[in-house]
């Protein structure tokens, strides 16, 4: 069996919710990054009982690897159903890694307006940062071998779980 088992996503989400509860207000805007971040943000939005409608971002049009790998095949639609200008925002993503997705998300958000602040909530942080980005709210830090990736999955009942994928083969 490879390495230590991954933590339970549902428990991490609960921990994340508890961290965020004292830090959100009636005007806080929550924004999930497609696809895993949107699943998490939907749950957080419900459990934190937020009044401002949920926003979603697909950062494909802002990615810095477009020159290398082209446009993502399955672009989702960004939808920010509230005023960004002057609002305190929380970005939600599943796995924090290089920080490049977060950079792209912040660039996109500024095309909607100038937020008062942006904080980041992530379910797991696997290290390997290439940009000065840090999560303000975090489920857990995990160690993953290079060349492998962690993916958030959602089953038909809406239950979230973490899975490893990538090169390493298990004999």
């Amino acid at each position: 069996m490879p390495g230590t088992p991954l933590p339970d996503a549902e428990q991490l989400l609960k921990a994340l919710t508890d961290q965020m509860r004292p830090e959100v207000g009636p005007e806080t805007g929550l924004i999930g990054i497609h696809t895993g971040g949107v699943w998490l943000a939907e749950r957080l939005h419900r459990d934190l009982n937020l009044k401002v409608p949920l926003g979603t971002l697909d950062v494909s049009f802002y990615r810095d690897d477009y020159e290398k790998i082209g446009l993502h095949r399955d672009v989702k639609t960004s939808d920010i159903p509230f005023e960004v200008e002057g609002r305190h925002l929380i970005l939600v993503d599943d796995v924090l890694y290089t920080g490049r997705t977060i950079r792209a998300a912040m660039n996109e958000l500024f095309d909607y307006g100038r937020p008062a602040s942006i904080r980041l909530a992530a379910l797991v942080d696997r290290g390997g940062r290439e940009l000065p980005v840090a999560a303000r709210f975090l489920g857990a830090a995990v160690t993953v071998a290079p060349g492998r990736s962690i993916e958030l999955k959602r089953d038909s009942d809406g239950r979230l779980s973490l899975a490893l994928s990538g090169d390493e083969h298990v004999a």
């Binding site: 697909d58 494909s60 049009f61 802002y62 477009y66 446009l71 672009v75 989702k76 639609t77 960004s78 939808d79 660039n107 996109e108 095309d111 909607y112 307006g113």
Partner: peptide, 16 residues
């Protein structure tokens, strides 16, 4: 479809 959303924003531009 995703670009229709972009054209409805304040800043109707992406950097691609």
């Amino acid at each position: 479809k995703s670009f229709v959303g972009v054209t409805q924003r304040e800043v109707k531009k992406v950097p691609l």
